[in-house]
Write a protein that binds this DNA or RNA. Structure first.
Length: 439
RNA sequence: UCCUCGGUAGCUCAAUUGGUAGAGCGAGCGGCUGUUAACCGCUAGGUUCGGGGUUCAAGUCCCUGCCGAGGAGCCA
Protein backbone atom coordinates (compact mmCIF):
# COMPACT_ATOMS: atom_id res chain seq x y z
CA UNK A 1 0.00 0.00 0.00
CA UNK A 2 1.59 3.30 -1.15
CA UNK A 3 1.06 6.33 0.96
CA UNK A 4 0.97 9.79 -0.68
CA UNK A 5 3.47 11.95 1.20
CA UNK A 6 4.66 15.56 0.88
CA UNK A 7 8.42 16.01 0.75
CA UNK A 8 8.26 18.42 3.71
CA UNK A 9 6.96 15.52 5.85
CA UNK A 10 9.64 12.99 4.88
CA UNK A 11 11.19 12.70 8.34
CA UNK A 12 8.06 10.82 9.54
CA UNK A 13 8.18 8.24 6.74
CA UNK A 14 11.74 6.94 6.48
CA UNK A 15 11.77 3.27 5.49
CA UNK A 16 8.21 3.30 4.16
CA UNK A 17 6.90 2.67 0.67
CA UNK A 18 5.52 6.03 -0.40
CA UNK A 19 4.54 8.02 -3.43
CA UNK A 20 5.21 11.67 -4.27
CA UNK A 21 3.13 13.69 -6.73
CA UNK A 22 5.07 16.49 -8.35
CA UNK A 23 7.10 17.78 -11.26
CA UNK A 24 10.50 16.90 -12.67
CA UNK A 25 12.92 19.64 -11.61
CA UNK A 26 16.02 18.25 -13.28
CA UNK A 27 17.62 14.91 -14.06
CA UNK A 28 21.08 13.42 -14.33
CA UNK A 29 21.97 9.99 -15.59
CA UNK A 30 25.07 7.94 -15.40
CA UNK A 31 24.69 4.92 -17.64
CA UNK A 32 22.45 2.44 -15.94
CA UNK A 33 21.51 4.71 -13.05
CA UNK A 34 19.23 7.72 -13.27
CA UNK A 35 18.70 10.54 -10.78
CA UNK A 36 15.40 12.41 -11.01
CA UNK A 37 15.01 15.57 -8.98
CA UNK A 38 11.30 15.81 -8.22
CA UNK A 39 9.67 18.81 -6.59
CA UNK A 40 6.18 18.75 -5.10
CA UNK A 41 5.80 22.36 -3.94
CA UNK A 42 6.99 21.58 -0.41
CA UNK A 43 10.51 20.49 -1.33
CA UNK A 44 12.72 18.61 -3.73
CA UNK A 45 13.61 14.92 -3.53
CA UNK A 46 16.15 12.90 -5.46
CA UNK A 47 14.53 9.81 -6.91
CA UNK A 48 17.03 7.14 -7.95
CA UNK A 49 16.35 4.54 -10.66
CA UNK A 50 18.41 1.51 -11.52
CA UNK A 51 17.95 0.13 -15.03
CA UNK A 52 18.43 -3.38 -13.74
CA UNK A 53 15.66 -3.04 -11.15
CA UNK A 54 12.97 -1.10 -13.03
CA UNK A 55 13.53 -2.61 -16.47
CA UNK A 56 14.53 -1.08 -19.80
CA UNK A 57 11.11 0.26 -20.75
CA UNK A 58 10.42 2.37 -17.64
CA UNK A 59 14.05 3.46 -17.46
CA UNK A 60 14.06 4.80 -21.02
CA UNK A 61 10.65 6.39 -20.52
CA UNK A 62 11.86 8.26 -17.45
CA UNK A 63 15.08 9.28 -19.15
CA UNK A 64 13.10 10.91 -21.96
CA UNK A 65 11.01 13.07 -19.62
CA UNK A 66 11.45 16.81 -20.10
CA UNK A 67 12.02 19.31 -17.32
CA UNK A 68 8.75 20.10 -15.46
CA UNK A 69 6.88 16.99 -16.62
CA UNK A 70 4.27 16.16 -14.00
CA UNK A 71 4.59 12.71 -12.50
CA UNK A 72 3.83 10.49 -9.53
CA UNK A 73 6.86 8.62 -8.27
CA UNK A 74 6.59 5.66 -5.96
CA UNK A 75 9.26 3.82 -4.05
CA UNK A 76 11.01 3.31 -0.76
CA UNK A 77 12.14 6.36 1.20
CA UNK A 78 15.51 6.33 2.90
CA UNK A 79 18.08 8.65 4.31
CA UNK A 80 21.17 9.22 2.20
CA UNK A 81 23.71 11.97 2.75
CA UNK A 82 24.70 11.91 -0.92
CA UNK A 83 21.24 13.15 -1.92
CA UNK A 84 20.36 16.85 -1.92
CA UNK A 85 18.09 17.35 1.07
CA UNK A 86 19.34 14.22 2.83
CA UNK A 87 16.59 11.84 1.66
CA UNK A 88 16.16 9.84 -1.51
CA UNK A 89 13.55 7.58 -3.02
CA UNK A 90 14.47 4.28 -4.58
CA UNK A 91 12.03 4.25 -7.48
CA UNK A 92 9.80 1.26 -8.13
CA UNK A 93 7.27 2.96 -10.38
CA UNK A 94 6.50 6.19 -12.21
CA UNK A 95 3.15 7.41 -13.43
CA UNK A 96 3.53 10.14 -16.03
CA UNK A 97 0.72 12.64 -15.53
CA UNK A 98 1.64 15.30 -18.07
CA UNK A 99 4.53 15.75 -20.47
CA UNK A 100 6.60 18.91 -20.76
CA UNK A 101 8.50 19.49 -23.99
CA UNK A 102 11.06 22.29 -24.37
CA UNK A 103 10.38 23.95 -21.02
CA UNK A 104 11.64 27.50 -21.57
CA UNK A 105 13.43 28.11 -18.27
CA UNK A 106 16.61 26.07 -18.32
CA UNK A 107 18.93 25.64 -15.32
CA UNK A 108 21.34 28.28 -16.63
CA UNK A 109 21.08 32.05 -16.55
CA UNK A 110 18.29 34.12 -18.06
CA UNK A 111 17.65 37.80 -18.48
CA UNK A 112 15.03 39.80 -16.61
CA UNK A 113 12.74 40.40 -19.58
CA UNK A 114 12.66 36.74 -20.51
CA UNK A 115 11.94 35.66 -16.94
CA UNK A 116 9.24 38.30 -16.49
CA UNK A 117 7.60 37.17 -19.73
CA UNK A 118 7.53 33.69 -18.22
CA UNK A 119 6.57 34.74 -14.72
CA UNK A 120 3.85 32.06 -14.61
CA UNK A 121 6.60 29.42 -14.96
CA UNK A 122 9.36 31.34 -13.16
CA UNK A 123 7.30 30.94 -9.96
CA UNK A 124 8.43 27.29 -9.92
CA UNK A 125 12.12 28.19 -9.59
CA UNK A 126 13.75 27.74 -6.18
CA UNK A 127 14.48 31.38 -5.53
CA UNK A 128 11.01 32.63 -6.48
CA UNK A 129 9.49 29.79 -4.50
CA UNK A 130 11.44 30.87 -1.42
CA UNK A 131 10.55 34.56 -1.75
CA UNK A 132 6.83 33.89 -2.08
CA UNK A 133 6.89 31.58 0.94
CA UNK A 134 8.43 34.41 2.92
CA UNK A 135 5.73 36.71 1.57
CA UNK A 136 3.16 34.28 2.91
CA UNK A 137 4.89 34.24 6.30
CA UNK A 138 5.07 38.04 6.46
CA UNK A 139 1.36 38.40 5.68
CA UNK A 140 0.42 35.74 8.22
CA UNK A 141 2.72 37.42 10.75
CA UNK A 142 1.16 40.85 10.36
CA UNK A 143 -2.35 39.47 10.62
CA UNK A 144 -1.54 37.36 13.67
CA UNK A 145 0.21 40.27 15.36
CA UNK A 146 -2.72 42.66 14.89
CA UNK A 147 -5.38 40.05 15.59
CA UNK A 148 -3.50 39.18 18.77
CA UNK A 149 -3.78 42.79 19.89
CA UNK A 150 -7.52 42.86 19.37
CA UNK A 151 -7.60 44.57 15.99
CA UNK A 152 -10.54 43.97 13.66
CA UNK A 153 -9.86 43.40 9.98
CA UNK A 154 -12.01 45.93 8.15
CA UNK A 155 -11.34 46.01 4.42
CA UNK A 156 -11.93 49.09 2.36
CA UNK A 157 -13.21 49.62 -1.20
CA UNK A 158 -11.04 49.48 -4.29
CA UNK A 159 -13.43 51.54 -6.45
CA UNK A 160 -13.43 55.02 -4.99
CA UNK A 161 -15.15 58.23 -6.07
CA UNK A 162 -12.22 60.59 -5.63
CA UNK A 163 -8.63 61.10 -4.61
CA UNK A 164 -7.69 60.62 -0.99
CA UNK A 165 -4.28 62.23 -1.18
CA UNK A 166 -4.91 64.31 -4.29
CA UNK A 167 -2.47 64.38 -7.18
CA UNK A 168 -2.57 62.90 -10.63
CA UNK A 169 -1.47 59.38 -9.86
CA UNK A 170 -4.87 57.73 -9.94
CA UNK A 171 -6.04 55.02 -12.30
CA UNK A 172 -9.36 56.08 -13.73
CA UNK A 173 -12.02 53.63 -14.80
CA UNK A 174 -15.57 53.75 -16.12
CA UNK A 175 -18.23 53.10 -13.51
CA UNK A 176 -21.68 52.95 -15.15
CA UNK A 177 -21.04 56.10 -17.15
CA UNK A 178 -19.45 57.85 -14.19
CA UNK A 179 -15.79 57.97 -13.24
CA UNK A 180 -14.31 55.82 -10.54
CA UNK A 181 -10.73 55.61 -9.36
CA UNK A 182 -8.75 52.66 -8.08
CA UNK A 183 -7.87 53.15 -4.42
CA UNK A 184 -4.48 54.57 -3.52
CA UNK A 185 -5.07 53.95 0.15
CA UNK A 186 -7.79 52.65 2.45
CA UNK A 187 -6.87 54.99 5.26
CA UNK A 188 -9.87 57.36 5.26
CA UNK A 189 -12.23 54.39 5.36
CA UNK A 190 -10.11 52.73 8.03
CA UNK A 191 -10.59 55.86 10.16
CA UNK A 192 -14.34 55.35 9.90
CA UNK A 193 -13.76 51.75 10.94
CA UNK A 194 -11.67 52.78 13.92
CA UNK A 195 -14.51 54.96 15.17
CA UNK A 196 -16.71 51.85 15.07
CA UNK A 197 -14.31 49.20 16.42
CA UNK A 198 -11.54 51.11 18.16
CA UNK A 199 -8.67 49.22 16.49
CA UNK A 200 -8.89 48.12 12.86
CA UNK A 201 -6.70 47.34 9.91
CA UNK A 202 -7.28 47.04 6.22
CA UNK A 203 -5.10 45.00 3.93
CA UNK A 204 -5.37 44.87 0.19
CA UNK A 205 -4.06 46.03 -3.16
CA UNK A 206 -3.61 49.71 -3.85
CA UNK A 207 -2.98 51.39 -7.17
CA UNK A 208 -0.79 54.28 -8.20
CA UNK A 209 -0.37 55.49 -11.76
CA UNK A 210 3.04 56.98 -11.07
CA UNK A 211 5.34 56.94 -14.04
CA UNK A 212 8.08 55.50 -11.91
CA UNK A 213 10.63 53.18 -13.38
CA UNK A 214 12.65 52.06 -10.42
CA UNK A 215 13.20 48.93 -8.39
CA UNK A 216 11.09 50.42 -5.58
CA UNK A 217 7.84 50.94 -7.49
CA UNK A 218 4.88 48.88 -8.59
CA UNK A 219 1.64 50.28 -9.99
CA UNK A 220 -0.28 47.69 -7.97
CA UNK A 221 1.03 46.90 -4.51
CA UNK A 222 -0.35 45.62 -1.23
CA UNK A 223 -0.66 47.86 1.75
CA UNK A 224 -1.43 47.07 5.37
CA UNK A 225 -3.06 49.98 7.19
CA UNK A 226 -3.81 49.81 10.91
CA UNK A 227 -5.82 52.66 12.43
CA UNK A 228 -6.46 53.18 16.14
CA UNK A 229 -8.88 55.62 17.76
CA UNK A 230 -7.60 57.60 20.78
CA UNK A 231 -3.99 56.90 19.73
CA UNK A 232 -1.34 59.58 19.25
CA UNK A 233 1.89 59.73 17.22
CA UNK A 234 3.96 58.14 20.01
CA UNK A 235 1.58 55.20 20.22
CA UNK A 236 1.64 54.92 16.44
CA UNK A 237 5.41 54.62 16.32
CA UNK A 238 5.40 52.06 19.13
CA UNK A 239 2.83 49.97 17.27
CA UNK A 240 4.87 50.11 14.06
CA UNK A 241 8.15 49.07 15.68
CA UNK A 242 6.55 46.27 17.70
CA UNK A 243 4.92 44.91 14.58
CA UNK A 244 8.10 44.97 12.49
CA UNK A 245 10.14 43.35 15.26
CA UNK A 246 7.54 40.64 15.67
CA UNK A 247 7.35 39.77 12.00
CA UNK A 248 11.10 39.79 11.40
CA UNK A 249 11.67 37.40 14.27
CA UNK A 250 8.84 35.18 13.03
CA UNK A 251 10.41 34.93 9.57
CA UNK A 252 13.82 34.19 11.12
CA UNK A 253 12.20 31.47 13.17
CA UNK A 254 9.97 29.82 10.58
CA UNK A 255 11.61 30.55 7.22
CA UNK A 256 15.28 29.98 7.97
CA UNK A 257 15.61 27.61 5.02
CA UNK A 258 14.21 30.12 2.57
CA UNK A 259 16.43 32.91 3.91
CA UNK A 260 19.43 30.62 3.53
CA UNK A 261 18.53 29.82 -0.06
CA UNK A 262 18.34 33.56 -0.73
CA UNK A 263 21.76 33.95 0.97
CA UNK A 264 20.29 36.56 3.29
CA UNK A 265 22.67 37.93 5.93
CA UNK A 266 20.77 36.68 8.98
CA UNK A 267 22.80 38.79 11.40
CA UNK A 268 21.35 41.95 9.89
CA UNK A 269 17.83 40.72 10.63
CA UNK A 270 18.72 39.54 14.13
CA UNK A 271 19.57 43.17 14.95
CA UNK A 272 15.98 44.22 14.43
CA UNK A 273 15.03 44.81 18.07
CA UNK A 274 12.96 47.60 19.59
CA UNK A 275 13.23 50.41 20.41
CA UNK A 276 14.01 51.74 16.95
CA UNK A 277 15.72 55.13 16.87
CA UNK A 278 13.45 58.15 16.41
CA UNK A 279 14.81 61.32 14.94
CA UNK A 280 13.13 64.48 13.77
CA UNK A 281 13.05 65.78 10.24
CA UNK A 282 15.16 68.75 11.29
CA UNK A 283 17.82 66.42 12.70
CA UNK A 284 17.86 64.56 9.37
CA UNK A 285 18.47 67.86 7.61
CA UNK A 286 21.49 68.41 9.87
CA UNK A 287 22.81 64.97 8.94
CA UNK A 288 22.36 65.69 5.23
CA UNK A 289 24.04 69.08 5.47
CA UNK A 290 26.95 67.59 7.38
CA UNK A 291 27.26 64.82 4.80
CA UNK A 292 27.29 67.36 1.99
CA UNK A 293 30.16 69.30 3.55
CA UNK A 294 32.11 66.09 4.14
CA UNK A 295 31.48 64.81 0.60
CA UNK A 296 31.55 68.00 -1.50
CA UNK A 297 32.26 66.15 -4.75
CA UNK A 298 29.44 63.62 -4.58
CA UNK A 299 26.53 64.19 -6.96
CA UNK A 300 22.90 63.91 -5.96
CA UNK A 301 23.31 64.77 -2.30
CA UNK A 302 22.23 68.40 -2.59
CA UNK A 303 19.39 69.13 -0.21
CA UNK A 304 17.16 72.07 0.63
CA UNK A 305 15.73 72.18 4.12
CA UNK A 306 11.97 71.87 3.77
CA UNK A 307 12.06 69.44 0.85
CA UNK A 308 11.14 65.79 0.98
CA UNK A 309 13.95 63.24 0.94
CA UNK A 310 15.01 61.43 -2.22
CA UNK A 311 16.16 57.83 -2.31
CA UNK A 312 19.82 58.81 -1.88
CA UNK A 313 18.99 61.05 1.08
CA UNK A 314 17.13 58.24 2.81
CA UNK A 315 20.17 55.99 2.41
CA UNK A 316 22.51 58.59 3.86
CA UNK A 317 20.25 59.08 6.89
CA UNK A 318 19.70 55.37 7.46
CA UNK A 319 23.34 54.42 6.82
CA UNK A 320 24.56 54.86 10.38
CA UNK A 321 21.83 52.72 11.98
CA UNK A 322 21.62 48.93 12.17
CA UNK A 323 17.86 48.86 12.54
CA UNK A 324 14.84 50.63 11.07
CA UNK A 325 14.74 54.32 11.72
CA UNK A 326 11.71 56.48 12.40
CA UNK A 327 11.81 60.04 11.10
CA UNK A 328 9.07 62.24 12.49
CA UNK A 329 7.71 65.80 12.36
CA UNK A 330 8.00 66.54 8.66
CA UNK A 331 7.17 69.97 7.23
CA UNK A 332 3.43 70.25 6.71
CA UNK A 333 3.82 71.50 3.13
CA UNK A 334 5.16 68.17 1.87
CA UNK A 335 2.64 65.96 3.65
CA UNK A 336 -1.04 65.06 3.27
CA UNK A 337 -3.91 67.33 4.35
CA UNK A 338 -5.22 65.00 7.05
CA UNK A 339 -2.08 64.99 9.23
CA UNK A 340 -2.38 66.82 12.53
CA UNK A 341 0.01 69.72 13.12
CA UNK A 342 2.52 69.50 15.93
CA UNK A 343 1.36 71.60 18.89
CA UNK A 344 4.88 72.94 19.59
CA UNK A 345 5.48 73.94 15.93
CA UNK A 346 2.55 74.49 13.58
CA UNK A 347 4.80 74.17 10.53
CA UNK A 348 5.40 70.48 11.28
CA UNK A 349 3.04 67.50 11.24
CA UNK A 350 2.68 64.62 13.67
CA UNK A 351 3.71 62.12 11.03
CA UNK A 352 6.55 59.65 10.65
CA UNK A 353 8.25 57.49 8.04
CA UNK A 354 10.01 54.26 8.87
CA UNK A 355 13.14 53.74 6.83
CA UNK A 356 14.42 50.19 6.51
CA UNK A 357 18.15 49.63 7.00
CA UNK A 358 20.65 48.60 4.30
CA UNK A 359 19.37 51.22 1.89
CA UNK A 360 15.93 49.70 1.41
CA UNK A 361 14.21 53.01 2.06
CA UNK A 362 10.74 53.88 3.25
CA UNK A 363 8.54 50.95 4.22
CA UNK A 364 6.01 52.75 6.43
CA UNK A 365 4.37 56.16 6.43
CA UNK A 366 2.06 57.09 9.28
CA UNK A 367 0.54 59.94 11.22
CA UNK A 368 -1.80 61.20 13.85
CA UNK A 369 -4.88 62.56 12.08
CA UNK A 370 -6.35 66.02 12.30
CA UNK A 371 -9.30 65.59 14.65
CA UNK A 372 -10.79 69.10 14.68
CA UNK A 373 -13.65 69.75 12.27
CA UNK A 374 -12.85 73.36 11.45
CA UNK A 375 -9.14 72.77 11.02
CA UNK A 376 -9.69 69.78 8.76
CA UNK A 377 -12.14 71.75 6.62
CA UNK A 378 -9.57 74.51 6.33
CA UNK A 379 -6.88 72.01 5.22
CA UNK A 380 -9.17 70.50 2.59
CA UNK A 381 -9.69 73.95 1.13
CA UNK A 382 -6.00 74.82 1.33
CA UNK A 383 -5.20 71.70 -0.70
CA UNK A 384 -7.89 72.60 -3.26
CA UNK A 385 -9.72 69.34 -2.67
CA UNK A 386 -13.47 69.07 -3.42
CA UNK A 387 -15.19 69.56 -0.05
CA UNK A 388 -18.37 67.73 -1.16
CA UNK A 389 -16.40 64.53 -1.61
CA UNK A 390 -15.09 64.73 1.93
CA UNK A 391 -18.38 65.34 3.73
CA UNK A 392 -18.50 61.78 5.01
CA UNK A 393 -14.90 62.08 6.20
CA UNK A 394 -15.74 65.35 7.95
CA UNK A 395 -18.64 63.55 9.64
CA UNK A 396 -16.04 61.56 11.58
CA UNK A 397 -15.08 64.89 13.22
CA UNK A 398 -18.68 66.05 13.46
CA UNK A 399 -19.92 63.03 15.39
CA UNK A 400 -17.73 61.99 18.28
CA UNK A 401 -14.27 63.02 17.13
CA UNK A 402 -11.23 61.57 18.88
CA UNK A 403 -7.54 61.55 18.26
CA UNK A 404 -6.68 58.80 15.82
CA UNK A 405 -3.47 57.49 14.34
CA UNK A 406 -2.33 54.82 11.98
CA UNK A 407 0.10 54.01 9.23
CA UNK A 408 0.44 52.34 5.86
CA UNK A 409 3.00 49.61 5.37
CA UNK A 410 4.15 48.75 1.87
CA UNK A 411 4.11 44.96 1.85
CA UNK A 412 6.40 44.36 -1.12
CA UNK A 413 9.01 46.82 0.12
CA UNK A 414 9.01 45.09 3.49
CA UNK A 415 9.39 41.68 1.87
CA UNK A 416 12.16 42.93 -0.42
CA UNK A 417 14.08 44.17 2.59
CA UNK A 418 13.54 41.03 4.69
CA UNK A 419 14.56 38.81 1.77
CA UNK A 420 17.52 41.05 0.98
CA UNK A 421 16.63 40.99 -2.72
CA UNK A 422 17.27 43.69 -5.26
CA UNK A 423 13.95 44.41 -6.90
CA UNK A 424 10.33 44.75 -5.76
CA UNK A 425 9.06 42.79 -8.77
CA UNK A 426 10.18 39.48 -7.24
CA UNK A 427 8.24 40.11 -4.02
CA UNK A 428 4.79 39.72 -5.60
CA UNK A 429 3.54 36.81 -7.72
CA UNK A 430 2.52 38.82 -10.76
CA UNK A 431 4.01 42.33 -10.63
CA UNK A 432 2.34 45.25 -12.33
CA UNK A 433 4.71 47.95 -13.42
CA UNK A 434 4.65 50.85 -15.83
CA UNK A 435 5.90 48.62 -18.66
CA UNK A 436 4.57 45.29 -17.45
CA UNK A 437 0.97 44.15 -17.56
CA UNK A 438 1.64 40.55 -18.68
CA UNK A 439 1.33 37.74 -17.90
C1' U B 1 8.71 63.03 -18.49
C1' C B 2 14.28 63.36 -18.48
C1' C B 3 19.36 61.02 -18.60
C1' U B 4 22.35 56.55 -19.69
C1' C B 5 22.80 51.74 -21.80
C1' G B 6 21.04 47.75 -24.72
C1' G B 7 18.24 44.55 -28.83
C1' U B 8 22.93 38.75 -32.74
C1' A B 9 20.57 30.82 -32.44
C1' G B 10 15.03 28.69 -27.86
C1' C B 11 18.27 31.10 -23.55
C1' U B 12 22.96 33.82 -21.83
C1' C B 13 26.49 36.20 -24.51
C1' A B 14 30.98 36.95 -28.14
C1' A B 15 32.39 38.76 -33.04
C1' U B 16 39.61 43.23 -33.34
C1' U B 17 40.02 49.10 -37.61
C1' G B 18 33.73 48.12 -41.60
C1' G B 19 36.12 42.31 -44.52
C1' U B 20 33.67 34.15 -44.23
C1' A B 21 28.02 34.56 -38.10
C1' G B 22 30.75 32.00 -33.05
C1' A B 23 30.71 29.66 -27.95
C1' G B 24 28.27 27.77 -23.58
C1' C B 25 23.52 26.16 -21.99
C1' G B 26 18.94 24.04 -23.85
C1' A B 27 17.04 20.42 -27.87
C1' G B 28 18.03 15.61 -30.82
C1' C B 29 21.28 11.17 -31.22
C1' G B 30 25.14 8.15 -28.83
C1' G B 31 28.33 6.82 -24.28
C1' C B 32 28.88 6.26 -18.87
C1' U B 33 25.92 2.24 -12.13
C1' G B 34 26.31 7.66 -7.24
C1' U B 35 25.07 12.11 -10.07
C1' U B 36 24.98 17.26 -7.19
C1' A B 37 23.38 23.68 -12.52
C1' A B 38 26.99 15.97 -13.64
C1' C B 39 30.38 14.71 -17.51
C1' C B 40 32.24 13.11 -22.77
C1' G B 41 31.32 12.81 -28.35
C1' C B 42 28.31 14.09 -32.63
C1' U B 43 24.03 16.82 -35.06
C1' A B 44 20.46 20.46 -36.03
C1' G B 45 19.50 25.44 -35.07
C1' G B 46 20.42 32.78 -37.82
C1' U B 47 15.43 37.90 -42.07
C1' U B 48 21.94 40.06 -36.47
C1' C B 49 14.48 44.32 -33.64
C1' G B 50 11.77 47.22 -38.09
C1' G B 51 12.50 51.07 -41.98
C1' G B 52 15.86 54.23 -44.64
C1' G B 53 20.98 55.77 -45.82
C1' U B 54 26.69 55.77 -46.55
C1' U B 55 30.13 52.01 -48.78
C1' C B 56 33.26 47.59 -53.37
C1' A B 57 31.63 45.55 -48.58
C1' A B 58 27.42 46.92 -42.61
C1' G B 59 25.93 42.78 -36.82
C1' U B 60 29.55 46.89 -36.73
C1' C B 61 28.95 53.71 -39.21
C1' C B 62 24.66 57.60 -39.86
C1' C B 63 19.18 58.88 -39.55
C1' U B 64 14.50 57.19 -37.80
C1' G B 65 10.85 54.10 -35.41
C1' C B 66 9.69 50.22 -31.90
C1' C B 67 10.83 47.39 -27.54
C1' G B 68 13.47 46.68 -23.00
C1' A B 69 16.92 47.62 -18.82
C1' G B 70 19.34 50.93 -15.16
C1' G B 71 18.87 55.64 -12.84
C1' A B 72 16.34 60.52 -11.70
C1' G B 73 11.95 62.95 -10.29
C1' C B 74 7.41 61.20 -7.56
C1' C B 75 6.03 57.82 -3.89
C1' A B 76 4.78 52.84 0.02
Amino acid sequence: MKKRVYIADFSDHVGEEIEVAGWLYNQRSSGKILFLLVRDGTGIVQAVMSKKEVGDELFEQAKALGQESSLIVSGALRKDDRAPGGYEMWVSGIEIVGTSIDYPISPKEHGTTFLMDHRHLWLRSKRQHAILRIRHEVIAGFRDFLNGRGFINLDTPIFTPNAAEGSTTLFETDYFNAKAYLAQTGQLYAEAGAKAHGKVYCFGPTFRAEKSKTRRHLTEFWMLEPEVAYMDLEGDMELAEDMIEDVVSRVLDRRAEELKLLERDIGKLENIKTPFPRITYEKCCDILEKYKTEHPDEDGVEFERGEDFGARHESIIAESYDRPLMVHRFPAEIKAFYMKRAPEDESKVLGFDMLAPEGYGEIIGGSQREDDYDTLLKRINEHNLPVEAFQWYLDLRRYGTTSSAGFGLGLERTITWICGIHHLREAIPFPRMMYRLNP
